[in-house]
Amino acid sequence: MFGKLKKASNGKLLEPRTIGIPRALLYYLYPGLWETFLKELGMQVTVSAPGTRKTIEQAGLISESEHCLPVKLFDAHLAELAGLVELIFVPRILSTLPGHIACPKLGALPDCARAQCPGGITIITVDINENRTPLTESMAQLGRLLNADETVIHQATERALSALRRARAVPTAPRKPDALNFLVIGHPYNLHDSYLSGPILQKIESLGVNAELVSFADRTALPEPVKWDTCSIMHDRLQRLVPSEWDGVIHLSSFNCGCDSIVSTLYQEVLREKEIPCMTLVLDEHAGQAGVDTRLEAFVDSIKDQHEHAATCH
């Protein structure tokens, strides 16, 4: 199996102490889980630093030019970890939700990481396919790869899962009266990457809008019509929206996202039927914030205008 640890000449497993987790894709898909789990196993865990302008510039330089932005950022975070740790954890994510499949790019990620990383660094990987094996089993496999005892693995799994539940259950802030209510949707790795989404969310707030981020804690989405896991959760949420409670939806997509190219049409269809205004913002490598700010202001203004118009007509 990939990532099996090398044995020393005396037959004992060499026990590595340091393991790195890139702060991208897998980190946001399972917030808090891997960090807690590996720490509980007794590893010294390094998570790459939160993204900055430098990360994006580095990503543009070293990554395959046609990758989507999150995968490019993943490459930059991976490069940052190289040299700092002995092992880097990159799971092969095939499905994060029973009955669904993950974005195909995530399946090739450990192989790509191995192809890109300089020698001397071991990429450690397990298959995550919640269609076939429960998450706990994948975690146990990882524990065994790292040569941990079953009891330790069991305990670590429990703690990691509760950390995951806590991180996923984003508390909903109390709504301000008389303010507009927006739902912000997007893949967790776009929505929760503070460098990518932070300025946009701040801008929304500064315009006096209550913004709620879509939650990925609800795992009940059906695989029809969208089979991709995170997209399906968002599609499901949009279908359950009550039009009177929401004034708008903002979709944070990322440049060259294959999944969003298909499903954003479906999101828009749902929202058109419910008559909820929707705007898609595409995150890319541009540093200028002005363009996004103007679009947000215009979007909020036009909604306010519409509300006033409706009020005077009645």
């Binding site: 395959e64 046609e66 990758h67 989507c68 995968v71 974005c103 195909p104 790019k105 399946g107 090739a108 990620l109 192989d111 790509c112 191995r114 192809a115 890109q116 060259n256 294959g258 190219s261």
Partner: peptide
């Protein structure tokens, strides 16, 4: 095709 999900994702491997 530009942005093809499966083919682009294996390009780093082809380079290797």
């Amino acid at each position: 095709p530009a942005g093809c999900m499966p083919e682009i994702s294996v390009r780093p491997i082809l380079r290797k």
